[in-house]
Design a protein around this nucleic acid. Structure first.
Lengths: 129, 129
DNA sequence: TCTAAGGCTTCCAGTTACAGGAAGCTCAAG
DNA sequence: CTTGAGCTTCCTGTAACTGGAAGCCTTAGA
């Protein structure tokens, strides 16, 4: 199967698929004309990767997860460990964003947003909280 | 004042300060020995930038905000507009992270995390939600 | 006076996960 | 036989820095 169809079926842009091959996440065969020839197993892997990326896992995490997926001797604890660390990272990102959001929304509310130059947002940035 | 002291006073690493000069956010003078010579106004700007970055504004937003800050003829509506757009972006990032968090925490909870290979996390990634 | 340690300089590479675009080969249709 | 779509590789750019190398400047101590 050519990259175009794979792209549709796996839900990933061709550029991304080529990139994943570049970094060794998938290894499609090649046809005589030089085109990539994907097997069902490649598509399966790509879809796996797409879903892992949707959950926010880094490429390196994805590589690890894919390795574990293909390793019959894995222990679920290994998978869980990767996922838990990622969950922690997500939590701290959320906390950071919420903190930004809080400050920023106060400032936005305090700003008149009219034609005059006076602005609490700039004042805050200028002198700190 | 040299970059080291400015770094401490503005709370930004020297590398970052040099970078900000590179991209034209600050324009410190130069001493005869070639060292950067920062004025109080430079430090003030750098601190402003540091706080704007802490609130998650992009460098380009920071450039805009700094420009507005120094523009006596600004209208607060311009500032508010930048801030509101950023707030919206923050909100959608939070929403996205929360969505990831929800799925992922369900999966993590469902995974035994023991020595056996069976893992709901991998199963989910393999076949999608 | 010489030296060694910092601090400063510039410049180049690496990071993350791709996207855009150019130049050129291949294939299917009319 | 030509045209257009699809494929290939390769190079560049993105965001916002960080790390490191090579080398100049300054200052304190032996």
């Amino acid at each position: 199967m050519n990259i175009g169809e794979v792209s549709e079926r796996a839900g990933l842009p061709p550029k991304t698929i080529r990139y994943y091959e570049d970094i060794g996440l998938v290894r499609p065969l090649r046809s005589d004309n030089g085109y990539r020839a994907f097997r069902e197993s490649d598509i399966h892997k790509l879809a796996f990767l797409g879903r892992a990326r949707t959950l926010g896992f880094s490429i390196e995490d994805c590589r690890t997860l894919l390795g574990l997926y293909e390793d019959e001797t894995r222990e679920s604890a290994q998978v869980k460990s990767v996922a838990k660390e990622h969950l922690t990272a997500i939590d701290s990102k959320i906390a950071q964003l919420k903190s930004m959001r809080k400050t920023l929304s106060h400032l936005v509310d305090a700003c008149q947003g009219d034609h005059r130059p006076d602005c609490p947002i700039l004042e805050d940035l200028a002198k700190g909280s």
